[in-house]
Simulated assay, not measured.
Amino acid sequence: MSDSDLSSRTVLVTGATSGIGFETARQLAERGATVLVHGRTAEDTQAATDKLIAAAGIDAGQVCGVTADFTCLEEVEALARRVVAEHPHLDTLVNNAGIAAPERHTLTADGNEIVLQVNFLAHYLLTCLLEPALTSDPGGRVVNVSSSLHRTASIQWSDPHRVRRYSRLAAYAQSQLALTVFAADPRVTAVSVHPGVCETELLSLYAINGASAAEGAAHVVRLCDPATEIVNGAYYDRDQRVEPAQAATEDRTVKRLSKLADQLIGHNT
């Protein structure tokens, strides 16, 4: 993996207070990047930024905490407005925040199934709203942290909130397929990556044991590096580019998902 200097780069990492998100923020900051550290609450975000600053070699000016609860789309909009205003030149957006689906079917106040909103719709909205700030300079990109479980999924077009038949694993997999499909949206330069099965809060969905969060984050950071050339819509399993599920590369599916997402977030993005 390249250890090129990233001091000219500004990166927003969602879900950066723990797990792969925190390790991604740490590794980016250690290589000189300015990192916007997103957390769900102000307390979580402050604790994460304090921990990063305490790490060797990371300057306080390199990390900036930003907060939004992705179960509330209004907070996502406020986050986007703040980032565009304070960081009009954003090199990379890492769409990493994610939750495991709850045992029981749960809707957000916005009326969306909670894992679909947190893992996909909030990132879709955020990405669209950050488009003015996301640079078109060489190396500018979006990195969606997805999952190999997207291969097991289908998008329930007529019942995306899975009201009629809810399964937590199916709901989670659907959110990951949607995020993977979104990487092929022509409006942004984006890739998606499965960072491997890691020791995070989502481990129970995959296995008993996993790699360290730092190992998983290294695969994300590699794709943030402008020295790593990417093709829009590409999918990586750790450090290897592989073909995603067939649906993730179909133009019809990409357009259909965009239309559905616009409806669900109530925006004409």
Rank of each mutant, 00 (worst) to 15 (best):
N95G: 10
A207T: 07
C198K: 02
F120A: 13
T67W: 03
V221G: 06
Q246D: 13
S147Y: 10
G216P: 11
S148Y: 08
T152M: 03
L116W: 14
E113V: 11
G15C: 08
R141F: 02
A173H: 12
L260V: 13
S192A: 13
T34F: 01
V193C: 04
P186G: 13
V188L: 10
K259H: 15
S8R: 14
G140T: 00
D3E: 12
D137E: 14
N209H: 14
S148N: 06
R81Q: 10
H87K: 06
A171Y: 10
E250A: 15
S158V: 05
D237L: 06
P160E: 11
Y172Q: 07
L257P: 09
A183W: 00
A218D: 14
E77L: 02
R151M: 04
A42F: 06
N95W: 01
D69C: 04
A170M: 10
G39Q: 08
G39W: 06
A217W: 10
T14M: 11
A211S: 12
T41E: 14
P88M: 05
T92C: 13
D225M: 04
R82D: 12
L134Q: 08
S4M: 02
F182G: 01
E113K: 09
D225L: 03
A97K: 04
R168P: 09
Y236A: 00
F182Q: 07
R241Q: 15
V242I: 15
V143L: 02
D44Y: 01
V188C: 00
R104T: 15
I53L: 07
H150W: 04
G196K: 03
I53T: 13
D110W: 07
T135E: 09
L12Q: 05
A60G: 15
L93D: 03
E86V: 05
G98S: 10
V13M: 04
G57Y: 01
K255S: 14
T108D: 12
A85M: 00
V143H: 01
R187V: 09
H38A: 08
A170F: 02
I230N: 07
R104W: 13
P132T: 04
